[in-house]
Design a protein around this nucleic acid. Structure first.
Lengths: 367, 367
DNA sequence: TTGTAGGCGTTATCAG
DNA sequence: CTGATAACGCCTACAA
C-alpha cells in the first residue's frame, strides 16, 4: 500500500533540534556538533573564525548555533587557550570619578565582546605590591591589563608585566620623558600640557600678570606635565612661574586649602591662581571665601579635571577637561583590537572649559 | 675501592623538587602529585580542605606545594566545579563615589581570597536589560552577584537571578516594604530612615519650624525611606511635611537647583531645607547664593550621602552619612562566608554629620 | 585514607 | 576542508 503524500511540517517533533531544545540544558559544542553532524573541531573552527571551513558548512553550523542558542563557555575556552577573557584594571588612585569614568570607557568597548572587566586596586606602598599584581595577572591569565596613573609610571611594575608577557596599556600624561629614557609600551596619553597652556593663555588674556600656581605631587607624571604646560603658556607671554606664589599640593582638597593659604597670605598676592587639579582649586575657594575675597571679582581660579565638583561649586569653576572616558575606551580598544603586538600609542587633547571663576583683573587692583 | 664519606648537602641537584624548580614552569596539580608521590586526587583533597586526609600526608603535600609555589588554576577549577571564582557587581547608578566606595568595601573582603570582582554596569531602560544580565551571570558562572540600588529593587531582575540559582545580595535602603510583599533575598540594608529622623531632629532643635523638603525620584526605594524618615522626625515634634514647600528631584544637582528655586520662591519661604541627597542640596546652595541668601544665616541646608562634595563646598554641608564601604564589605562577606544558603540580612545605621550649613533660625526672621 | 577512571567544554595536533 | 584523539588543569564517583 502506498501512503498518500502528507503535508506535515518539515520540522516535526522528531526534529533533533526540537528534541534538544526540550531538554532545556545549556548547549555545548558537543550538542552543536552532533546536531550539525560535524565534528567538534569544525564547530570550534567556526567559533574562532577559521577561514578553512567551507561556507556551506559554516552556514549550516551557524544555523544550529543560533537555533539552540549555543555560546561557548569562556572558562573552558580559557583553559584550552591558556588565557582568560578578562581584562584587568589595576590602579592605586583615590579619585573616584576618574576611576568610574575610566571604567565606563573600558566597558563601552568591552560590552558585547565576551570580555569582562576585573577591577584590582592595589597599594603601591605595600611590600608585596608587585607580588600581588604578578599573582593576580598570572593566576587569572588576563588577556590584557590597563594601568592608571600614578602606578602607570612604575617601572618595576612595568617590568613585571613585561616578564609575564601580558599585553598592557598605560594611561599617562606625558608622551616622552625628558630626562629618563622613554618607556616603550602601549600608551593612551593625554595632552595635559596643552590644557595648561590654554589655562595660562586664558588668564593672561584676562589681564592677569601675577598668577599663583599650585602644583601636584611629584610622584605623578601629570604634575610635572601640568607645571611645564603652565610654564610654557606663561612663557609665550613673557611671564614665568613665580616661586614666591607657588606651592606644592597633594592633589587633595586639604592640600589645596593649605597651598592657597600660603599663596594668598603673600603680601603681594596674585590676582589669579591656577591649581593643578579641581580638588585643590576648590581648596583655594575656601581660603578665598574665608578671607572675604570674591571669586572671580578679587581672584580668578582655574582647576584641572572638570570633576563634578567643578560644575557644582559657586561660582562654577573654570577648568581643563580630559576625555577620560574616551581614553578608557581607547585603552580597551588597544588591547582588544590590536592584532599585532606592536606598541600602540594614542594621544588625546585637553580642553579648557571656561565657567565663572575667571574674570578680568579688577581695574582698581594695586599690587 | 671504597669511596670516602662525603659531606654533600642532603638536597643535591638530584632532588626532584630542585629539578622541577629548574624548569621554571608554572606548577600544576600533577607536579605536586608526582613530587609528593601521591595521586592528584589527594592533592585535590588538600586544596579543598577535605577532612579525609591523613595529617601526615597533608603536611608532606603542603610542603611540596609551598616549595614549588603551586597555586590551583581558577579556570580549570572553575570548569570542573561548574562555577567561576568571580563575583559580579551589577549596577545602573550614576553616582561615582557610591560605586567606588562600594567596590572598595567588596574588595576589602575579596582581597587574598582568590576571588575577583567583575564590574558590570547596565542600562535598565534597555530592551535587552534582563537578557544581558542573564547572559553575563550564566556565561561567567558567577559565584555571587551584588546588586546596587536602584536595580536592587527590580523584581524581574531578582527573579532572573533566582532562576539562575546564583547567590546574590541586594543593597537596599528599606528593610521591609510596607505595601508590597517583602522581597525575601539576602540584603545589606541601610537605615536611611534613621538618618533622616536625625536630620529633622537637628533642624527642629535649632528652632526651625518651616522646613522645605526635596525628595528623590520614586524609582528609588531610598527616596521613599528618606521621605518617611523625615516625616517621622518632624512628626515627633508635632510637625508635618508641607507640600507647599516640597519638591521632587532626580537626585541630581540640576534637579536640586530647580527644586530649590521652586521652594525658595514661595512667598513664605522656609528657614531650612532638607534635600534627599547632597547633589540636590548643593543645587539649593546655588539657588540661595544667587538669591543673595546666606547659608546658614538665612537658610539652613541638610543633605544626604556625605559625598566628597559635602565637605568641600562652602560652607561645608551638614549631611547624613551611610557606611557604604562597610556595606560593600558585608555584601561580599554574605556571599563568600555564608555556608548555608539561607537569606541573610544585615542592617547598617546612618549618622548625621553636622557641619556648617545649619544654624539656629535667625532671630529677626519674619515669615 | 587513598587511588583510578572519567568528565567539565574547549582547542591543538596531525592525519586523511 | 574535516575529523579522531589528546591535551588544558582540576574535580566527582566509585573503588580499593
Amino acid at each position: 500500500m502506498t501512503l498518500p503524500p502528507q503535508t506535515q511540517p518539515v520540522k516535526s517533533a522528531a526534529d533533533p533540534v526540537e528534541e534538544f531544545l526540550k531538554r532545556r540544558k545549556k548547549a555545548t559544542i558537543n550538542d552543536v556538533a552532533a546536531l550539525a553532524r560535524v565534528s567538534k573541531k569544525t564547530v570550534s573552527r567556526i567559533i574562532n573564525n577559521s577561514p578553512s571551513v567551507r561556507e556551506e558548512t559554516r552556514e549550516a553550523v551557524n544555523a544550529i548555533i543560533a537555533r539552540i542558542g549555543f555560546r561557548p563557555d569562556p572558562q573552558a575556552r580559557g583553559l584550552a587557550f591558556r588565557r582568560s577573557f578578562l581584562l584587568g584594571l589595576i590602579y592605586d588612585n583615590p579619585n573616584a570619578q576618574y576611576i568610574v569614568n575610566m571604567q565606563m570607557g573600558i566597558l563601552d568597548k568591552v560590552r558585547g565582546s565576551g570580555i569582562e572587566l576585573v577591577v584590582h586596586p592595589c597599594d603601591k606602598t605595600s611590600d608585596s605590591f608587585l607580588e600581588e599584581i604578578r599573582d593576580f595577572v598570572e593566576l587569572q591569565r588576563l588577556s590584557g591589563v590597563i594601568l592608571l596613573p600614578p602606578i602607570a609610571e612604575n617601572r618595576q611594575l612595568i617590568q613585571v608585566l613585561e616578564e609575564l608577557a601580558v599585553p598592557f596599556v598605560r594611561i599617562t600624561a606625558r608622551h616622552g620623558d625628558d630626562n629618563s629614557p622613554p618607556i616603550k609600551t602601549s600608551q593612551v596619553v593625554s595632552r595635559d600640557r596643552m590644557g595648561c597652556q590654554q589655562a595660562a593663555d586664558h588668564l593672561v588674556s584676562l589681564g592677569h600678570r601675577r598668577i599663583g600656581f599650585i602644583e601636584g605631587p611629584h610622584t605623578y607624571a601629570s604634575a610635572k606635565e601640568r607645571r611645564q604646560g603652565f610654564a610654557e603658556g606663561l612663557k609665550a607671554h613673557g611671564l614665568d612661574i613665580d616661586p614666591e606664589i607657588t606651592a606644592e599640593g597633594a592633589y587633595s582638597f586639604e592640600s589645596g586649602f593649605e597651598a592657597g593659604q600660603k599663596i594668598l597670605s603673600h603680601p603681594d598676592r596674585p590676582t589669579a591662581i591656577f591649581a593643578s587639579n579641581d580638588e585643590m582649586a576648590i581648596g583655594v575657594y575656601k581660603v578665598a571665601l574665608q578671607m572675604g575675597l570674591s571669586v572671580p571679582g578679587d581672584l580668578s581660579i582655574i582647576g584641572f579635571d572638570d570633576s563634578p565638583l567643578a560644575a557644582r561649586v559657586y561660582p562654577a569653576l573654570t577648568t581643563v577637561r580630559l576625555p577620560i572616558r574616551d581614553m578608557g575606551r581607547m585603552a580597551a580598544e588597544t588591547l582588544i583590537d590590536q592584532e599585532d603586538h606592536r606598541k600602540h600609542t594614542t594621544v588625546f587633547d585637553a580642553a579648557l572649559v571656561v565657567r565663572d571663576s575667571t574674570a578680568p583683573v579688577p581695574k582698581n587692583f594695586k599690587p
